[in-house]
Amino acid sequence: MSVPHLFRCPISLDIFTDPVTLCTGQTYDRQCIERWLADGHRTCPVTMQALGDGDTTVLVPNRTLRHLIERWLSAATDHSLPESADDDPSLAALKRCLQSDATSVAAKIGALKKVLALASESDVGRACMLQLGFLCVLLPLVFHAAPAAPAERHAEAEELALQCALSLMPSNAAAPQLDCLNMLKKEDNLASFVRLLGRGSGRAKAGLCRLLETVATAAATRDLALVVAASPRVWQALLPLLQQHAGPATDARASEAAVRAIAAVCAAEPARGSAIHHGAVGALFRHLSWWAYGKGGGAVSSALAAVEALAETEAGRRAVARAPGATRILVRHVFMMSSSNDGSEHAAAALLAVCRESRAARSEAVGAGVVTQLLLLLQSQCGARAKAKARALLKLLKSR
């Protein structure tokens, strides 16, 4: 579609999703102007007019523009709809094809491929589909009762629908469209999620873990995150993925995505007890034990972040103390030769939490060479928090 100039944010050049107006009279997409101001800019991006301290916090919703955009979207897609999306590639036809129970699986697969192509090629197309409610149409195609006769075509449709949903997922954790994910609160839909997580392809498993990470971080799904974290079936399907890092590339991606999902879930304090109860600590350390010194990248950093979060609880510290070789594994990751010191920071923080309560852990850490690791960390370009944790741990070990 040819998007009217006034419907595009002057910063991103994408169609407005949440237009707000500054005191200068210029309208921007909320996410774009908030990022501009957060970066320290104190001018209007279009007029370069200086903004006062109070002006940077006053963002007035432009409801008129938003209404005009919604009317334009409706007018652009609301016309005589054919029986098949093959005859009419409009968004309305695609949406109708996906929503209809009478549409064959083959026809839905064709429509999903068009949605995926449009979402991949065009930011405007992605924004339009998000505003037209495609996310709420796609998710039921992923999470539904298993077909009576399992078929490859059904599995293909589920995976395509999942890819489409992920491609439309808003990056803003406060986006209202993420409320659609709350459909997983229903027992049947959550059961479908678990089924796919356990039996789907490696690509589908990775996608579901990305979806779980979104659920754990989005404002609209806080209650759902606790429901998911409390489900034994979710943990039974999720934790085995951590041990698939040495398999095919698709399984390795699923393993890394699972680690990030667990870290996101464990960031919420109410979810930690359930994670510990279902064996997350042992699974995380088995995952960490596989990686050689300085290897593993984001997967290791995320696993260590999860361990740190769990070690903040008494039950988590007990679980770490029981995990075979846990102290030595943490020591090994205190100084990580990588572009980011996040993993080192998490390892030092987790080790400090465990050593504060366990003399045996302190002795084992010293025997594993933690002092050398901490000194190397302090000499590196690590952040202030990592250095503070390293100094506190050295002080604790000195007084043991």
Rank of each mutant, 00 (worst) to 15 (best):
residue 127 A to W: 03
residue 86 D to W: 09
residue 224 L to P: 08
residue 99 Q to E: 09
residue 158 E to S: 14
residue 253 R to K: 14
residue 246 A to R: 15
residue 393 L to D: 06
residue 254 A to F: 07
residue 135 L to E: 00
residue 130 L to W: 11
residue 115 V to S: 00
residue 345 E to F: 03
residue 68 L to Q: 10
residue 330 L to T: 06
residue 1 M to R: 06
residue 162 L to I: 02
residue 45 P to C: 00
residue 119 A to D: 11
residue 311 A to H: 07
residue 103 T to M: 13
residue 96 R to A: 15
residue 382 C to G: 09
residue 92 A to H: 11
residue 110 G to I: 02
residue 367 G to E: 15
residue 351 L to D: 12
residue 221 T to G: 03
residue 50 A to W: 08
residue 111 A to H: 02
residue 243 Q to W: 10
residue 369 G to A: 06
residue 399 S to L: 11
residue 79 H to L: 13
residue 135 L to D: 04
residue 275 A to V: 05
residue 143 F to V: 06
residue 203 R to E: 14
residue 102 A to Q: 15
residue 168 L to A: 07
residue 159 E to I: 04
residue 338 S to L: 05
residue 322 R to Q: 15
residue 68 L to I: 09
residue 317 R to F: 09
residue 222 R to D: 14
residue 10 P to Y: 09
residue 282 G to Q: 11
residue 182 N to F: 01
residue 111 A to S: 15
residue 333 H to I: 03
residue 247 G to Y: 10
residue 252 A to R: 04
residue 167 S to F: 02
residue 236 Q to N: 15
residue 84 S to P: 07
residue 179 D to S: 14
residue 92 A to K: 00
residue 334 V to A: 03
residue 53 D to N: 13
residue 200 G to H: 07
residue 376 L to S: 09
residue 276 I to C: 02
residue 259 V to G: 03
residue 333 H to A: 00
residue 220 A to P: 06
residue 1 M to S: 12
residue 344 S to T: 05
residue 64 T to C: 11
residue 18 D to Y: 10
residue 194 V to W: 05
residue 102 A to K: 13
residue 328 R to D: 14
residue 248 P to F: 12
residue 101 D to P: 11
residue 159 E to N: 12
